[in-house]
Design a protein around this nucleic acid. Structure first.
Lengths: 200, 200, 200, 200
DNA sequence: AATGAATGAGCATTCATTCAT
DNA sequence: TATGAATGAATGCTCATTCAT
């Protein structure tokens, strides 16, 4: 709780700047100005520009993990849990454009920029989804033939692509609730009309 | 004919270079060298670096559209059509790492770099999905409450996130067929164990 | 009088382009376009860009020489002859902005660009002035202590500086006649009030 | 103090380089090397290359104004004052080849390069001449029919053209004193043999 | 710890010139 | 002669990083 936690201040500033300009177009001096420190000061806390990007990314994902985890703790039904994940994710993305931008673009960039970067925080995040699915399979709620390792990506990808459009346009054809309803309907029950219903 | 189609040669080279280094780290001279032309020659065919990026992107998406459209023409069942889309998309992404990279990263970049860029080619591509869904709804195969405008993004996002991993790692935990099976199962029938089955 | 005297056509075009953009900002392709020939064609008639500049300059000065000489042939009074020179020079400069520009700037540039360039045409032009003065001295009209080699420069410089302002602004505070009247008054009679008049 | 006045150092270096190579042929790296700073350092003090040119020009003209003004303060006779202006101008041009070059060429260039550039410093400089003439007219020393606005240009132009030759050649046919004598004789008394003298 | 002036490597783009046709 | 596509050297300017204070 230090009054002047420069490290955090800089990360906060960098998040804003990266979101607005993207990693390559962001200048260290932009971040420094936003953080109200000298350019050189940044190098007392980070090794280089890329280091800032990774820190920003991990911090943001960290917040997501924390928020989602907290919300999930109150619920045990795997169906509801998946919905909570979707709701939390989309709500935060919608609310925090910076976060959305950073995840959208920098998730891809950082993977390219640093081959060695394993991005454990991100893996931890989407593994929340596979954990829910596995638990649902144990509870015989989710089909056993679903592979959590694939389903987690499909689920996250669906949410991510939807929020991508928000960060580039002001398109608000659908409400968040509508979208969540649709995504949950698809992922839980699929798009096919059930044979039983068809028979009617 | 193709002997001196510099325009195509440069796009081809640029695709390779962008895929390998990303837009910002790619140098015009890299592209020129790859295309075996002088740096200046590139500017006889493109206005600037961004122009190359957009051309590359549109050409690649164009190929996808063409391939997918061709494959879809042979099939009328909306269930099968969706599967064909997924299969074609994933197969081409798997085969053509450059294509995957360019779509993965540059789809996000170009949107940021040019606010005015409407990316019609890309919209055309994912609208293939919504068209299939709409047709399926007419045929009473897909549920009427599914909104094609949301479902198309969820479907594309799911495929895209899965192929994202391919472009950054050599991870081959699953075969393409396995993945397609999983994605189709989820999107068509959902992850829930059907009540009927549960009742059993 | 060849219908397609490319050499002249190119010089004509170059004059226009140099006047409008200046030597360094003019592009060979600008000249080629203006002359309606291909870029490469220019190199069939000129060695390089500098060569064009010199040709333009010499052609323009040549025209000046021709015009002034013709006008002077009709007059023998050295006082009148000097006035004719001033009138012709200023009138042509006023009428032909391209010419004025080229002389103004390129006279200085070419001297710098080519140390060896003796600029004989230009020397020939201002030597018209010293010739007039010498003749006037022979006729006991101009003071014998005036050195024609210095006076010619002072006279040309005065006219040149006056026309310089025309090429950069639309300033028309004075008419050409007014200016000629003033310049002739100064150079012929000086600015001092004559002692005789003062005595009055 | 002067120990690290980078701004001045760079202007000084630029003056030298512009004089030697001209604006267009001068490289930023030439100026940087001459000033013994890094290329980038120049951009901490100037916006761009043109900005340097203007600064150089204004500084040099400023020096001229200062020197001439100081010398004029000691003299009240308008005849002598005009001579002092001529002497100072020519002497400084002769002594400082860089100054002469920059004024000669860049005075013309900058006018072309920046249409909006009013060049107030230069106007201030030549207005010294018109101020002297006006004062001389008040004192009934200079003829009332001389228009100071035209005469100032004629006078400056005469001096300028004379010094132009110095900057392109080593021609020293005449001494500065000789030239001043001639110019003053012409401008004060004109080139005509006075009627009274002729009558003799 | 903090500063911010200074550095200098790096790159997109231009354009005079060439040359195969 | 004429073309214009192709060349590639050349340079203004940026910005991540350093380091003396």
């Amino acid at each position: 709780m230090k009054i002047t936690d420069k490290h955090s201040t800089i990360i906060h500033a960098a998040t804003k700047v990266f979101a607005k300009k993207g990693f390559f177009n962001a200048r260290i001096s932009d971040i420094a100005k936003e953080a109200k420190v000298a350019d050189g000061t940044i190098y007392l806390y980070f090794n280089n520009k890329l280091d800032i990007l990774i820190s920003v990314f991990e911090k943001e994902i960290g917040i997501l993990i924390e928020q989602v985890t907290k919300a999930l703790a109150l619920e045990t039904d795997p169906k509801k849990q998946l919905e909570i994940f979707a709701t939390k994710h989309l709500t935060m993305m919608k609310k925090n454009k910076n976060l959305a931008e950073v995840i959208q673009i920098e998730l891809r960039q950082s993977a390219k920029l640093i081959k060695e970067y394993r991005n454990n925080k991100f893996i931890e995040y989407i593994d929340i989804v596979s954990t829910i699915i596995k638990e649902g399979q144990v509870q015989k709620i989710y089909r056993a033939d679903i592979k959590p390792g694939i389903a987690k990506r499909a689920f996250f990808g669906a949410l991510d692509e939807i929020s991508r459009v928000w960060s580039i346009s002001l398109e608000t054809d659908y409400t968040v609730d509508e979208i969540i309803g649709q995504v949950m309907a698809i992922f839980l029950s699929g798009m096919l009309i059930p044979p039983a219903a068809q028979a009617e």
